[in-house]
Design a protein around this nucleic acid. Structure first.
Lengths: 128, 128
DNA sequence: ATTGACTTTTACGTAAACGTAAATTAAAAT
DNA sequence: ATTTTAATTTACGTTTACGTAAAAGTCAAT
């Protein structure tokens, strides 16, 4: 397996190294270290980072994202634990579904406004 | 026409009056005033506030939302202006569409993870 | 008329999510 | 071997989006 350095990841995602270290401070990501203390990131770490950034685009706080990572990540062993995880996941899924619907409504509205503008433009072209 | 007071709107949307005044500070909303200086909000103001809050849920900054309001709000007169507005609107529409696709992908992933968890739970029930 | 609830402005405080700079050490390139 | 580039920790700074408190005026109800 091969690793990424912090600046490689920073470049790939167009964020600062500080940002990546900050996510680590907050416990969202945990790279391994070389003897000298340099951080090394696996593909899995990269995937986590990607998930964080996606979460951010949707307006989730780092703490919410943290919870989601625990969900996706955790090797839940007990039956009770598994049930709880599923319940939490269903909750989050519902939230995401609502957001999608919300966004689709916004899209509709934007399209209708744009159609309106285009019509107006048509009429102006006519008179000009 | 009748008006809303600031605390009425605050209650309706479950936000603080400070928040509403802050949006005004930033130029996102402009209620009229009574002689004595009290703010009064029209239905249109209410709609704008709703739009702000929706934008926030999607992780847009107040500045981005401000731009959108200008788009939805503006009585563009000149043809050039109208064309520019349409172009901007199309851009935003594209962004929204991308976000929807992004979210739908997330939803897929969550569903598959959940299916996986449910399967695991099934197997555990069997052995217990 | 006066109590109480509401509103105003002014202004300082705060949490989240980083930015930035300094001092130090390590890795990579010439 | 020595520049150059990249990494680390520590720590203070900054922006956004409000919270909170104070002082003063206003509206609504008894």
């Amino acid at each position: 397996m091969n690793y990424y350095t912090i600046s490689q990841l920073a470049e790939q995602f167009d964020i600062s190294t500080r940002t990546i270290r900050y996510y680590e401070e907050r416990g969202l990501i945990s790279p391994i270290r070389t003897e000298s203390g340099q951080r090394l990131y696996t593909k899995k770490d990269r995937a986590v980072l990607k998930l964080i950034l996606r979460g951010k685009r949707f307006g989730f706080s780092l703490e919410e994202i943290h919870e989601m990572i625990r969900l996706f990540d955790n090797d839940r062993t007990g039956r009770k634990q598994l049930e709880k995880t599923i319940a939490y996941g269903e909750q989050k899924l519902k939230e995401v579904t609502e957001r999608i619907e919300d966004l689709m409504q916004l899209k509709q509205e934007m399209e209708s406004i744009l159609a309106d503008f285009r019509e107006r433009l048509q009429k102006m072209e006519g008179t000009k």
